[in-house]
Design a protein around this nucleic acid. Structure first.
Length: 490
RNA sequence: GGCGACGUGGCCGAGCGGCUAGGCACGGGUCUGCAAAACCCUUUACGGGAGUUCGAAUCUCCCCGUCGCCUCCA
């Protein structure tokens, strides 16, 4: 079964066919680094991390580009408002680059904890001013933009004569015109729906660069067009991002790509993939609503939203339990459920690794493996794929107890599938991180000691050993035949 | 106002015309020195109405409700 992905551009699931197999170019809009990474960033990163991992699993050689926006976009209407990064810098009396670097580091830290792989290339907007200027110049040459007072705007009206505008977001310009507000101070633009490619900087503006149009800084959308096409060519295979970026950001990107490269740009990317939001009580998470939860808050258990700390994998699991195109309603209860489910799945996994092969099989592994992969191939249905693993937990317990059997070959295939899908594709790190031998022997020695104590009915000692180990993150489980142990995260 | 999404059992959440997804929680039980884990049992849900169909959570229409985008935003 081929991989099928929902393409926002066509509003349907389409078979994924790369332009130049086995190579795949994927660009995902990364964060604007002016604040702490929150659950929304986590979801987007995890979703595209899974896509990245899955493509690699399928044998593609993926160049994954995810940008860091370190020039803040304006925070309110059109030409009004202040660059968010600059605002932060002003408030904290530090350099804009300090703001960007601080929050980039936080982003990396949070994403690393969530086991999100770093992209192949992580370009910054400020590091690609030259590419952005070059692109703007070319758009001007093609006649799809105009310069005025040191700023450059994309001429949407002119663009529309040659290309459709609004196909991605399902809008038409007439509606935009009808809905657009006439704002003061916008007289520079020919039309209110034109958008800036380059903005003139006032002398006091903290971040500014030389350009053919004077000192200024890049517009809101040009960095992604410039960096994606610079590293991936035009068009490239996959462009991803949050659902909120569809309009105007991605719509503008498409326009810029066409305006610069012409028809061959083919909507800049062939597959436009968008992840849905994390909500709280059904509402989008945002700073202004005050329902914003930072990724870090989950790991530290920061009130008022959380009563205790949760391991990063619990959050990753929660994200994976919902389809990426559905909203995910976050609550501590849901996180708690995900955390438990994760640990249970992982202990089943650990048991599977200890199963001994038999001379015949009582279960058809290959078809099950194919079902799992087919589920992921169907627009990355991670939730349904996880369900297939849970449906197998009973069976694995019976395997472990010898009540079900698998041949060496089947067992290895099953173990491989668990490892490949859970760890390599879904990126669920195991809480039992292959412990070092000495540690393992030490734990086993203590378990022996405790077992002896239990036989002698010295329960005080037995419990002391168990409690001490629990304090060290080692959980003991007494089975009739023997005691096994698990290492908990943290 | 325009465009779009969604309403599934206590909670989260798949599902895309027939075969009671799954997880978590709750209750009862088995096991156990205790605990944990595990196992067994219990709970058949799809906002409302009409329609299409042998058959609808799934398709159509209407209504109600929630949310998103149309300003930066994952």
């Amino acid at each position: 079964m081929p991989l099928r992905l929902y393409n926002t551009l066509t509003r349907q699931k389409e078979e994924f066919i790369p332009l130049h197999p086995p190579y795949v170019g994927m660009y995902v809009c990364g964060p604007t680094v002016y604040g702490e990474p929150h659950l929304g960033h986590a979801r987007a990163a995890v979703v595209f991390d899974v896509l990245y991992r899955f493509l690699r699993f399928l044998g593609y050689k993926v160049r994954y580009v995810r940008n860091i926006t370190d020039v803040g976009h304006l925070e309110s209407d059109a030409d009004e408002g202040e660059d968010k990064i600059l605002k932060k810098a002003r408030l904290e009396q530090i350099e804009p680059i300090e703001v960007a670097q601080r929050y980039t580091a936080m982003y990396h830290q949070a994403m690393d904890a969530l086991n999100v792989l770093r992209p192949s290339i992580e370009p910054t907007a400020t590091g690609h001013i030259a590419q952005q200027i070059a692109m703007i110049e070319r758009i001007l040459e093609q006649g799809y933009a105009y310069a005025v007072n040191g700023s450059v705007y994309l001429d949407v009206e002119r663009y529309r004569q040659d290309f459709p505008y609004g196909i991605l977001s399902g809008r038409n310009v007439e509606e935009l015109i009808a809905g657009s507000r006439e704002l003061e101070g916008q007289s520079e633009k020919k039309n209110p729906w034109d958008f800036a490619l380059w903005k003139r900087a006032e002398p006091t503006h903290l971040m500014q660069w030389d350009s053919p149009w004077g000192r200024g800084y890049p517009g809101w959308h040009i960095e992604c067009s410039a960096m994606s096409t610079h590293y991936l060519g035009v068009p490239f295979d996959i462009h991803g991002g949050g659902i909120d970026l569809i309009f105007p950001h991605h719509e503008a990107e498409i326009a810029q790509a066409h305006a610069c490269f012409g028809k061959d740009a083919h909507y800049e990317a062939r597959y436009w993939i968008h992840n849905n939001f994390v909500t709280i009580h059904g509402q989008k998470m945002s700073k202004s609503l005050g329902n914003f939860i930072a990724v870090e808050d989950v790991f530290t258990g920061k009130p008022p939203h959380l009563s205790r700390a949760y391991p990063p994998m619990a959050l990753r699991f929660l994200i994976l339990q919902a389809h990426y195109r559905s909203t995910l309603d976050f609550s501590e209860e849901a996180l708690q459920a995900a955390s438990r489910a994760y640990y249970r799945l992982m202990s089943t996994h650990a048991r599977l690794e200890e199963v001994a092969p038999q001379s015949y099989s009582t279960f058809a592994v290959q078809p099950w493996r194919e079902r799992v992969l087919a589920t992921l191939e169907d627009d990355l249905n991670t939730a349904a794929a996880l369900a297939l693993f849970f449906e197998q937990t009973d069976f694995i317990l019976k395997l472990y107890r010898g009540e079900e059997k698998l041949t060496q070959e089947d067992l290895q295939l099953l173990q491989r599938t668990w490892r490949e899908v859970l760890e390599d594709i879904l990126g669920l790190r195991r809480p039992i991180s292959v412990p070092w031998q000495s540690w393992k022997h030490m734990v086993e020695f203590l378990i022996d000691l405790r077992t002896r104590a239990r036989h002698e009915k010295n329960y005080a000692l037995a419990d002391a050993i168990r409690d001490k180990l629990k304090g060290l993150g080692v959980k003991l489980l007494d089975f009739p035949e023997r005691t096994i142990w698990e290492q908990e995260e943290e």
